[in-house]
Amino acid sequence: MKRLAVLALLVLWAAPALAAGADEAMLPDPAQEARARHIMEELRCLVCQNESISDSHADLARDLREIVRERVAAGESDKQVKAFMVDRYGDWILMKPPFNWRTAVLWLAPLLLLAAGGTGVWIYVRRQRTGVPPAAALDEVERARLLALLDEDGSA
């Protein structure tokens, strides 16, 4: 039992070594490899969808990583590599969607909601300020009535 637990621990320990891409051929130039890694983080895995291809174990993600490395090694810019992917899979493959008319609502919705909320608060505050007239000072009759009421309350 103890041996099994130790074994399980060892397997868990080794798991990071099995992370996506760990067994793949890295680019010999570390600067290029770093750039390729950065691009991979910005591309969506089409099979698992909420992972970048850098994190995914899917077969397709592996192939896409290979293509990223090939194109980086061939001297393409980040923009060119991403364009290659968008050409085939659309903007959807980008983890961070670009700002265009199709995604305008997505990007602007928080601002719109903030504006709507702000307008609501503004209207509320304005109404508070103008809606209720400032209380006038009590005249003699009111003061006498108030004292009477307070007295009544105290004696009850």
């Binding site: 089409l46 969808q49 968008v86 050409d87 085939r88 899979y89 659309g90 903007d91 959807w92 199709r102 995604t103 997505l106």
Partner: peptide
């Protein structure tokens, strides 16, 4: 917007 997550865009 493509709201069906099962379907990927038909980019070509």
């Amino acid at each position: 917007l493509n709201l069906n997550p099962e379907e990927t865009p038909f980019a070509i």
